[in-house]
């Protein structure tokens, strides 16, 4: 029996929320497993300063896997990031083979070792605000991310991070 668009929308919401948990908990491989082979990821923002749309980060599935595989080689701010996400809208294509979703996103950072841990550890602040603009491929058996754009409002990113958002 064909799955209804309503059920697909529910599954997509669940996928987006579960992906937030995977990313929050550094379960990178679980995130990659939810992405199609032709997946593409990008963090972008429009800069009013230089009047240009700017890509801050991203690449294909292979590149994003290499990024997360190499994390333990790098010196990183280990202050946890927590994604607060609300799925605003899911649109399923007529044929039920693809879908798009728009989600509001706020990421909080709780300081651990980024500044002076004695003073700052445990302090939570807003790290960034933006949206997830997602595209999905649906093959009847599974739903996978085909494209994720993290569209940032925040452009002052200070130390930045090594972690995908």
């Amino acid at each position: 029996m064909a799955v209804s668009h309503h059920e697909i929308k529910e599954q997509i919401r669940e996928l987006i929320y579960n992906t937030c948990i995977h990313l929050d908990d550094y379960e990178w491989q679980k995130w990659h497993n939810n992405c199609a082979d032709n997946f593409n990821y990008a963090i972008r923002a429009f800069s009013p300063e230089v009047q240009t749309d700017i890509k801050y980060h991203g690449g294909d599935k292979e590149y994003m896997e290499s990024i997360t595989n190499m994390l333990n080689k790098h010196n990183s701010d280990q202050s946890p990031l927590r994604r607060h996400c609300t799925v605003y809208r899911v649109d399923v294509a007529e044929d039920g083979k693809s879908a798009t979703a728009i989600s509001s996103l706020t990421v909080h950072q709780t300081q651990l070792d980024g500044v002076n841990s004695h003073v700052d550890a445990g302090t939570t602040s807003v790290f960034l605000v933006g949206r997830y603009n997602d595209t999905f491929v649906i093959d009847g058996k599974s739903i996978k991310f085909e494209d994720r754009e993290v569209r940032l409002d925040t452009r002052r990113l200070d130390k930045g991070t090594h972690w995908p958002i």
Binding site: I43, K55, Y56, H57, G58, G59, M70, H74, N75, S76, D77, G114, V115, N116, L157, D158, K159, G160, T161, H162, W163, P164, I165
Partner: peptide, 27 residues
């Protein structure tokens, strides 16, 4: 852009490390 971002973007490999180090000096 991809070449630039891989090390020098706010999510790149090198810039974050440099900024962590000088933040530590500032502390």
């Amino acid at each position: 852009i991809d070449h630039h971002n891989s090390i020098w973007g706010p999510f790149g490999r090198n810039l974050h490390e440099d900024l962590l180090a000088v933040t530590g000096q500032g502390s």
